[in-house]
Amino acid sequence: MTGTKKERRTALARLADALIEDVLATPDQELLAEFSDARGDPAKNADAMRALFEKSVLKSNKDRLRAAQAGLAASRAHSGPARIFNMQNARERLRRVLASCPRDVKITLAARNENELSDADVLGMLQDLDELGIVAPDDDGVRSGGSRDLNPSIVLGIAVVGERR
């Protein structure tokens, strides 16, 4: 857009601002009488405007629904396929991590004997440790000297965990 076109728009915008300022300052009765003279029944105008608003409510709700659906689809796409865990190695890994992690964390997490924990508890605790930064997201035992323990050929348990960071 050229400067001159912009100038014209700016001038018109100033005029519109002045008109709006006056419309907002005009007392209700004066405005209603003025509208009745020029355009007709103010009540009919209000009805039409309310109908437009309700149409907007409907559109807004539809937009929100579409956004939620798109968000869900995106989250599903990011979560990836189910991860397969070797639960025996996962338990071993938890023992290793607990043995080497700070005492206060150990006390909090190792309240129960690892043998008493369900597979879901083990995976949950590993995920908690991951979130606490005590174990790296892809730490599969390399740090403690073992070989990588996820071996799809020895599948003892399958668990689906949330989105990995």
Partner: peptide
């Protein structure tokens, strides 16, 4: 109110014009 709807209508017309 009816008067407030008139204000909204008029403002929308002015902006649409600009």
């Amino acid at each position: 109110t009816n008067a407030q709807w008139i204000r909204l209508r008029k403002a929308s017309i002015y902006f649409a014009w600009v």
